[in-house]
């Protein structure tokens, strides 16, 4: 009998493909006949973004990347359509562009309290669907409380930046792996999947990791 397959996922809260990829991975894992353990890791796509960026995502992308507003609008419409295809209702008109480092600290806090997966889902939905701010401590504490975490303790931990070193360690690990974009999935420490791929790609990789485990176990029994 094979063991649980560990999947490490590097992701950022304000990455549209990360939320889409999360849904596709979940669909792939549902196709897989085995146990999967998921751990999310921090990746900061734009660490120099101010917490309170004065403008919309369209302003941000057009000013920062120099892309014409019409083209940005078209790009966001496209990714919104792809999100819709996996059941996610992105609302870019209400998105608050921000710095995500503290939201990553919150994800590490949640992991330490056994709630990382719920926190990840809540943060992504808060940013892309609900128009909530995911850069300020008080707003993040509200979101943490919504999944049952101790609001006051979250404020304390985030104010003290207790988990900042863990965020930076994740970023360093991503660099060591050569990860340049997210979402990025590392399956059983040896297989990598880049981007929001189709569910079958994830299911196939999980099956391959399972087959490897079974092969290793069989080899051990034959010694």
């Amino acid at each position: 009998m094979s063991e649980t397959i560990k999947v490490d996922i590097w992701s950022d809260v304000q990455c549209p493909w990360c939320y889409i990829g999360k849904r596709k991975f979940e669909a792939g894992a549902a196709l897989f006949d085995g146990d999967v353990e998921v751990e999310y890791h921090s990746f900061e796509l734009a660490p120099d973004t101010p917490v309170d960026f004065a403008g919309s995502p369209i302003d941000y992308l057009s000013e920062r990347k120099g892309i014409p507003v019409a083209q940005v609008t078209e790009m966001l419409a496209r990714v919104t359509g792809i999100a819709e295809s996996v059941g996610l209702h992105y609302d870019y008109d209400s998105v608050h562009q921000t710095n995500t480092v503290i939201s990553h600290e919150l994800l590490h806090y949640a992991k330490a309290h056994g709630r990382q997966l719920d926190m990840k889902e809540r943060l992504l939905k808060a940013y892309f669907v609900d128009g909530r701010h995911v850069g300020r401590i008080e707003d993040l504490a509200d979101l943490a409380a919504e999944i049952g975490l101790d609001r006051a303790d979250v404020v304390r931990a985030l104010t003290a930046h207790e988990y900042l070193a863990d965020v930076k360690a994740d970023v360093a690990q991503a660099n060591a792996y050569g990860i340049q974009g997210v979402p990025f999935f590392v399956i059983d420490g040896k297989y990598g999947i880049s981007g929001a791929q189709d569910p079958e790609a994830f299911a196939g990789a999980l099956r391959q990791a399972q087959a490897d485990q079974n092969e290793t176990a069989a080899a051990g029994e034959n010694r």
């Binding site: 050569g178 040896k190 999947i193 994830f202």
Partner: peptide, 25 residues
């Protein structure tokens, strides 16, 4: 992606992803 040699890439290249502040969208 140019990942560490001990990681074997699976699946298709070119799936949606974000790199830096660009999301290829």
């Amino acid at each position: 992606p140019r990942v560490a040699p001990f990681i074997q890439l699976l699946g298709q290249s070119g799936a949606g992803s974000c790199e830096g502040d660009s999301c290829g969208i």
